[in-house]
């Protein structure tokens, strides 16, 4: 007799635990509350990334097309996997002195692991993280970017 009671108890407890689980999913079925799905390409306009989001490395330019990069190469040294290559050139300044300046600041997005060492260690704050995250391209060569814009110059006052 006892075994029969135990058997029935087992069945009832089991069914009760199943019903408790069903209550959870049932609750969400009827009142989902917050829907977690984002309708991504449709909400592109309203999509705001976190301000520190590490999308890609960029070199901010001001409206006069000037940047802060002195071409010191610290970012290149700090990069763990060689995504950054700084090609510098010698230019003559207005007062006739010869000075080192960047020719091309090459950034290989395809190799970058977003460790932020370049941005953090830049002595003149020339690099920053952009918020762009749609990096897909059809040609791998397009992932090699030149960060300084053509014709850009070193900002006045940055050594």
């Amino acid at each position: 007799m006892k075994s029969i009671i135990n058997y029935l108890k087992e069945v009832i407890c089991g069914v009760w635990s199943l019903l408790k689980g069903m209550a959870v999913t049932g609750k969400y079925f009827f009142s989902p509350g917050q829907i977690v799905t984002q309708k991504y390409p449709n909400n592109r306009k309203s999509l705001v990334m976190m301000e520190r989001f590490k999308g890609e490395v960029i070199m901010p330019h001001n409206e006069k097309n000037e940047h802060k990069c002195t071409g010191c190469g610290i970012c290149e040294i700090n990069c763990p996997n060689g995504s950054i290559e700084v090609i510098s050139k010698m230019i003559t300044t207005d007062d006739g002195k010869k000075k080192k300046a960047i020719d091309k600041h090459i950034y290989r997005l395809g190799m970058c692991t977003f460790c932020a060492l370049c941005v953090k260690n830049c002595p003149s704050d020339a690099l920053a993280f952009g918020q762009e995250f749609e990096h897909a391209v059809f040609n791998r060569a397009l992932l090699i970017k030149v960060l300084n814009k053509p014709g850009s110059q070193l900002m006045k006052g940055v050594e």
């Binding site: 976190m50 301000e51 520190r52 989001f53 590490k54 692991t113 977003f114 460790c115 932020a116 953090k120 993280f129």
Partner: peptide, 20 residues
Amino acid sequence: EETCGSRMIVSYNCPGGLMY
């Protein structure tokens, strides 16, 4: 993401402290 800039691969520590 708000503090470290990335969600999973945070890279937030550095020898001597934190990145930001």
